[in-house]
């Protein structure tokens, strides 16, 4: 393969790897937004906690890596359920401004809790994969990258199927589209809220746990993740699952190719530029809420 094609292929591979992660995180955010009408500024903290708990289980408690990942997600989900039950359930009728402030407060609280528990150092989750990179015609990746891509892609598909095909998924979408008629067919809205919040947190925590193998996690990571997730959700359309998936992949690829072929100082600007463009021409985002 010629050198330019190899480099292009490497950028594309990088973009898909990061894009899958963006998509997974954004799916959770869009679900919480769509069902509960909450702009969850603490979403990135679930990612951060997923990473830290996985690190704690593997590194400090010596748990098997593949057992630690689902367990970490389960622990974060349990925390999310407690938070939803004790805070957000009471805010069902509250205006968006109130819930937004509450999530901002929660994000600060969770970040500082992580700081107290684990300190400010970045931590990488030790993985059982060989660290030696794999090369396919000069395009490099590692077993861990491939594992991340496989897990995030699989979770996106599973999430999508759960939402499209299962009874609960359908109930969620109905709640999303018209709460009153959902309640009238017997869907318990507060349960749907709890499911949506837990499910959204689970997706973010799963992303944090798998990516934590090569992107060190620290207490402040959450803020950056939240920002990226919002970019994706605004790009894809607030409350749209397909939008979150397509938007996540698009942002990942745009950042990779943009940084690859433009001055790298502009990398972050690319995502925001894309959002401004979309908002100018399609204020509702690329996809409608589904």
């Amino acid at each position: 393969m010629s050198a330019t094609i190899t480099i292009l292929a490497q950028h594309l591979l990088n973009g898909v790897l990061i894009g899958c992660a963006y998509a997974l995180i954004a799916m959770g955010l869009t679900m919480i937004f769509g069902v509960m009408n909450i702009a969850n500024f603490a979403h990135g903290e679930f990612y951060m906690l997923g990473g830290f708990v996985a690190f704690y289980l593997v590194s400090l408690m010596g748990l098997d890596y593949f057992a630690a990942l689902p367990l970490a997600v389960a622990i974060v989900v349990a925390l999310a359920i407690v938070l939803q039950h004790s805070i957000f359930r009471r805010l069902r009728e509250a205006p968006m401004m109130t819930t937004t402030l509450v999530t901002i407060g929660l994000s600060i609280l969770l970040e500082n809790a992580a700081l107290l528990l684990w300190g400010p150092q970045p931590q990488s989750i030790p993985t059982p994969f060989p660290t030696k990179p794999l090369s396919f015609f000069g395009v490099y990746t590692t077993p861990l990258y491939l594992f991340c891509m496989a897990v995030t892609a699989a979770l996106i598909v599973v999430g999508h199927v759960l939402i499209r095909r299962t009874r609960m998924g359908k109930a969620m979408r109905a709640t999303f589209q018209n709460k009153e008629s959902a309640a009238l067919v017997g869907i318990r809205i507060d349960r749907i809220y709890a499911y949506a919040f837990a499910f959204g947190a689970a997706l973010a925590a799963a992303a944090g746990a798998v990516l934590g193998g090569f992107i060190p996690v620290e207490p402040a990571t959450g803020g950056i993740i939240t920002l990226k997730a919002f970019v994706v959700v605004i790009l894809g359309g607030m409350g749209s699952f397909v939008g979150a998936i397509v938007g996540g992949l698009l942002l990942g690829l745009a950042e990779a190719l943009g940084a690859g072929y433009m001055p790298t100082g502009w990398k972050d600007a690319i995502g925001f530029f894309a959002v401004i463009l979309v908002l100018l021409f399609r204020p509702e985002g690329l996809f409608k809420r589904v």
Binding site: R167, K170, A171, R173, A174, N178, A182, V185, G186, I187
Partner: peptide, 19 residues
Amino acid sequence: RKIWPDMSVQEHLELGAFI
């Protein structure tokens, strides 16, 4: 009517039987 605009006819009837 308060239908769910982005759900299919069949899904409406399935959810009608949610209970």
